[in-house]
Simulated scan of single mutants.
Amino acid sequence: MRGSGTAHGSGRTLRETVLESSPILTLLNESFISTWSLVKELEELQSNQENPAHQKLAGLHLEKYSFPVEMMVCLPNGTVVHHINANYFLDITSMKPEEIESNLFSFSPTFEDPSTATYMQFLKEGLRRGLPLLQP
């Protein structure tokens, strides 16, 4: 799996919280190739007529991108199997557990920080959606 953050900004908030968590880093190292792409870089790749494969991959990511940062879980062929906007992610992680209507993002008692628990669920959901598509 490929986890990527397509960023217009720095994504500093995520790097300073969830990406410093040992369980998150373990899962990323075991199951993902984690990358960051700037929108400008993707737009340049998409407009490069010399490499149709890169054009396609950039297009798949830009199609799912929303300002300022979009977190995506992608297959090796670039297909986005799961994504969430950083603003929405930060909004739901600032809510109290009883305020969350959807059980898609319920908080786990395993983590003290709701953003870490929610990001872990995001990654696991990406794996759940993507792994069956990788089977021969």
Rank of each mutant, 00 (worst) to 15 (best):
Q46E: 15
E43M: 10
G59V: 00
N77Q: 05
Q46R: 14
P23T: 07
N51W: 09
S31V: 00
N77P: 05
G59F: 00
I24N: 02
V73D: 00
F32T: 02
K64P: 02
E43V: 08
V39G: 03
C74P: 00
G78W: 05
L45S: 08
I24M: 07
K64N: 10
S31K: 09
N48C: 09
H82Y: 07
I33C: 04
H54G: 10
M72R: 07
V81S: 04
P52Y: 02
S31Q: 10
E50Q: 14
E44N: 15
H83F: 13
N51S: 11
P68H: 10
M72V: 13
S31N: 09
M72Q: 13
N77C: 08
L42R: 03
I84M: 14
A58H: 04
S37I: 01
W36Y: 15
P68W: 08
N51H: 10
M71Q: 08
S21H: 08
G78S: 12
I33E: 13
C74L: 15
M71K: 07
V80I: 10
V80H: 02
K40Q: 13
L28Y: 06
L38R: 10
F67C: 08
E70Y: 02
M71D: 03
S21R: 08
L25P: 15
N77H: 05
P76D: 13
S34W: 14
W36M: 11
